[in-house]
């Protein structure tokens, strides 16, 4: 009977953090279909592994499973499958600002492109930190690496982004 209950618990967790899961999948896998498939796999895996949850941040536990499913997906699809081209991968803009903000839109596109170009281990650490607001400890748990490694990946990722963005817009160091 506890199984029914556990299923409900995980289901609710998945529904609540579906955007976070999909976003992580999108940034790790690069396209909509693979990201959706990975999240679906993650839910099934989570529902059957609910007993492995041992306290702590449940969202981090869920994202760790999503990430594992993304890694399996990458392993099975090989390296030949192309990522979305930059235009197609551009996330929908949140606001409905008119194109007088062409500069801002361009700056956003540049950041998206640079984030996509980062080595995956730096990109995933940054996404968990900046998008999901996880602590170093939680990121370490999701990635299965020591906290020191999390710190150095974040730091390297940020430095690479700053440098890349500085190169693409040399005269505007204040960015957005």
């Amino acid at each position: 009977m506890s199984g029914v209950a556990t299923g409900a618990w995980v289901g609710e967790l998945a529904q609540r953090h579906l955007d976070a899961a999909y976003n992580l999948g999108r940034w790790l896998l690069g396209n909509e279909q693979d990201a959706a498939d990975a999240v679906h796999d993650a839910y099934l895996r989570a529902a059957r592994a609910a007993h492995t949850y041992a306290g702590g941040n449940a969202r981090a536990w869920w994202l760790a499973i999503v990430r594992n499913c993304c890694l399996s997906k990458i392993a099975t699809r090989g390296r030949d499958r192309p990522l979305d081209d930059v235009a197609a991968a551009q996330p929908r803009s949140a606001g409905d600002e008119v194109e007088q903000d062409a500069d801002a839109a361009q700056a956003r596109a540049r950041i998206a492109a640079q984030l996509r170009a980062l080595p995956p281990e730096f990109r995933e650490a940054l996404i968990l930190r900046e998008f999901e607001d996880l602590s170093y400890r939680e990121i370490a748990d999701v990635l299965g690496v020591p906290i020191g490694t999390v710190m150095s990946r974040l730091s390297r990722g940020r430095a690479l982004l700053q440098r890349a963005l500085g190169e693409t817009m040399p005269e505007r160091s204040d960015g957005l």
Binding site: G11, N23, A36, H40, L44, P91, A112
Partner: peptide, 25 residues
């Protein structure tokens, strides 16, 4: 940080995925 936290960088789950997960649950 401000640039990375811009909401436009986030991908929202498509409705089709939400339906898929609801069905799986």
């Amino acid at each position: 940080r401000a640039a990375l936290r811009d909401r436009s960088l986030r991908h929202a789950a498509p409705a089709s995925l939400r339906e898929r997960i609801d069905a799986a649950i």
